[in-house]
Structure formats: C-alpha cells, structure tokens
Computed example of a mutant assay.
Amino acid sequence: MTRLSGKTALITGSTSNIGRAIAEAYGAQGAHVVVSGRDDARGNAVVERIRAAGGRADYVHADLDGTLAASRALADAATDLLGGRIDILVNNAGIYPPSTTPTADEAMVDRVYAVNVKAPFFLTQVLAPAMAEAGGGVIINLGSWVARLAVPVGALYASTKGAMETLTRAWSAEFGPRGVRVNAISPGVIRSGDQIADAPSPADTMMYGTPAGKLGTPEAIAAAAVYLASDDAEFVHGTVLDVDGGRTGVAVVAEPAAAAAGA
C-alpha cells in the first residue's frame, strides 16, 4: 500500500518545477493525478512520466486568469476525469514577474493577484464544499518564505503569498469542522527542476549561513506535500510548513569572506 492509494488529486501549475514534482510524487504514491497548466506539451510529458512509472494521470489545459469561470471549468474537468470526486487540491500555480513597488504597474498588480490569489480562492470556493459533502478532503496551498522574511524586491509577489498563508488559516477554520484539512507549504529558495544538480546559481547567496547551506529541490517540497495529503497528517490543520533549509526559522550568520568567495 502506498500513502495516497485510492486518492484523487488536482495540482495546479504542475507542468514544471515544484508542481511537476508534486504530481509525480503523488502518482508514485498511488493517487490518480490531474496535471494542469498552460503548456500542453509539458503537461502531457508529465502525464507520460507518471504513467511510465506505473501511476495514473491525466492532463487538463488551464489558464487560471482569476475568474470564477476559469477556476470552475478546471474543477469540473478534473472532477470528471477523476470519477466525480477530488480528494486533494494543491493550489500551486503562481507567477512572479520581477518588479519593485515603483515598477509594478496596474496591469501587473491585477495579473499577479488574479493568478496567485483569486484563482486558488475560486477553486477552493468550488471544491471545498464538494469535498465536505463527499466526506472530506485535503487542500494544500503554496506560500513562500518571502511572505515572512522580507527582501527588497518582489513586494507584490510576497503580498500574494502572505494572502495565501492567511487564507490557509481562515479556510482551516471554515472547512476543517466539515472534514476538509487545509494546510500550506512555505518553500525556501528552490533550485529549478531544469537546473543541473549542484551547479552554481545566483540564488546560492540566499542560503549562505543557513542550516542547510544550499538550495532546496522541488522534490523536497513534493515530499512535504505527500505528507500533508496523507493520513499521517490527519491531526495537522491550519499549519504553514516551512520547507526552507532553516531560512526563516534560524538567524543567518555568514562570514563576509565566505559569501564573497561563493558569489
């Protein structure tokens, strides 16, 4: 028996990186997975990888633009493919356009909030009551370490992830008593799944002096997502699980010489 045997799961933004890793991990743990995203070629490739490993998966094209209609269309298509029931929803899809507060125009603000906050809000609006009526379910949101440890760029993105962490607690209070567990994962600085393992990256500097001392991997986030979706986490509600190598929980003390040498 695997940890998610017999479960069904929808993972948004699962054609690459963290979402892809979660989809593949869920497939390996016995869940029937719906992969979703905007890139059909990459989405179908993820499905084929899951199937080749012996798992069950399907792909749904989804451009989550923040409208209720787009979220409902994805929820309906995934529900049909999964036999009428979604047990696990992972709100992973998100965008991060490089910006500072002065350079974020109105269109960018609207787009980032549409994808990062409104789309998961409406997916949860549609699916959480259905989960409750079916006897229960699990919702996992993706936050970010920058929601609580500020950096001088990306204020817009950080604010959306702060919103998702707040919604995690609010939804836990709202839907937990009806059998729907809601939690979040807050990834740290994560190496892209397309990067060569252990190859130098400009992001390495963000992990100097942390307990881990290196970038995380999408697979580390996927392992946490498997745990939160499984019965092992049945008593975990309204929690934001930091999977960040100690970036937010431990004071970073880096030697200037060491940081300069690694830059």
Rank of each mutant, 00 (worst) to 15 (best):
A197K: 15
T248E: 04
V115I: 10
R191H: 07
G154W: 06
A158E: 03
F121N: 04
D231Q: 13
Q125H: 09
L215T: 08
A223E: 15
V240N: 06
S230I: 03
V189Q: 01
V180P: 08
A128Y: 05
D242P: 00
K214C: 08
F122Q: 11
S159K: 11
I185K: 14
E174F: 01
E174V: 07
V180D: 02
P152H: 13
G246H: 06
A199K: 15
A233Y: 06
L123K: 12
Y157F: 11
L142H: 07
D242Y: 09
L142Y: 02
R178F: 02
L149R: 13
N116W: 08
A134M: 00
V151R: 14
G137C: 10
R169S: 06
V115A: 13
S186W: 03
T166Y: 00
R178D: 03
M207W: 01
V126G: 03
E106M: 04
N183I: 02
V146R: 15
P129Y: 14
F175L: 13
V180W: 07
M108N: 15
A173T: 12
P129W: 08
S186G: 09
W171G: 05
A163P: 00
L215F: 04
I221E: 03
P152A: 05
A150W: 01
I196Y: 02
F235Y: 15
A220R: 13
G136T: 01
V189H: 00
A197N: 14
G143A: 10
A104M: 07
G209D: 05
A229S: 14
I196A: 14
A203H: 11
A130N: 11
